[in-house]
């Protein structure tokens, strides 16, 4: 019981027990506690309420809270598991867990499917993919003529849309990514393996006796 004991630390409203979160995710207890240090930083960057709103999420991603980005919006919506318009600590840890190098590949494939299924219809439709391509071209310096975009879409759907109904279902997606493993690179964040060394201050705020667990 020294000066640094923090058993009575006040937590934000969405805080959850690290032991429980570690049991449900690919993270160890120490990693969950280190993620809390990151979460506190992001969630207090605009409004210090212990929750990450869209502006704070964009600020963390782009260092600019006003930057509009279709994909960042989509990732935010998927992280906002309880559909409250904000990400609480439990949402943050459970969602990031999918990106852990040790997370099951199935979960990564499923998350990527949801990411591209913009309208949440259970299918990735050609129009959605076109919308995403156009959004990407708008935000980047890349310039592609409309015919080139259509050719890219034709080729992609010839390969991915096995039953040729103009949309990609979950089974088709699974087969497509198994032939194109580079698509899953964005679903693994090597940083998550080093989270305890990136945020070592978690040790001072730990409420778990054996932080090695």
């Amino acid at each position: 019981m020294g000066c640094f004991n923090s058993k009575f630390t006040k937590h934000s409203p969405g805080y959850e027990d690290p032991v429980k979160l570690a049991a449900e995710t690919a993270f160890s207890v120490s990693e969950v506690e280190a993620l809390y240090e990151l979460f506190k930083k992001i969630s207090s960057s605009v409004i210090d309420d212990g929750l990450i709103n869209k502006e704070e999420f964009q600020l963390a991603l782009f260092k600019n809270s006003k930057k509009e980005n279709l994909f960042a919006d989509r990732v935010f919506d998927l992280f906002d598991v309880k559909r409250k318009g904000v990400i609480d600590f439990g949402d943050f840890v459970r969602s990031l867990s999918v990106f852990h190098p040790n997370a099951p590949q199935e979960d990564k494939i499923d998350f990527a499917f949801k990411l591209y299924d913009l309208q949440c219809t259970g299918y990735i439709e050609r129009e959605e993919v076109k919308q995403m391509l156009i959004a990407l071209l708008c935000e980047s310096e890349m310039k592609l003529a409309d015919e080139v975009i259509e050719t890219i879409l034709d080729k992609t759907f010839q390969e991915a849309d096995v039953d040729q109904d103009g949309r990609i279902d979950r089974d088709e997606w699974q087969k497509f990514v198994s032939h194109n493993p580079s698509l899953m690179k964005i679903m693994t964040l090597p940083y998550l393996k080093d989270i305890t060394t990136t945020f070592p201050s978690f040790v001072f705020n730990s409420e778990v006796d054996d932080i090695a667990t």
Binding site: L70, L115, L136, L144, L183, L189, Y191
Partner: peptide, 26 residues
């Protein structure tokens, strides 16, 4: 690999909004 040689999803993964590693550089 030029953009027209990639499939649509390879292109989309180039988006900065999907680069979540930036979260850790906060």
């Amino acid at each position: 690999l030029g953009p027209s040689m990639m499939n649509a999803f390879e292109l989309i993964t180039l988006s900065q909004g999907l680069n979540l590693s930036a979260l850790f550089e906060t």
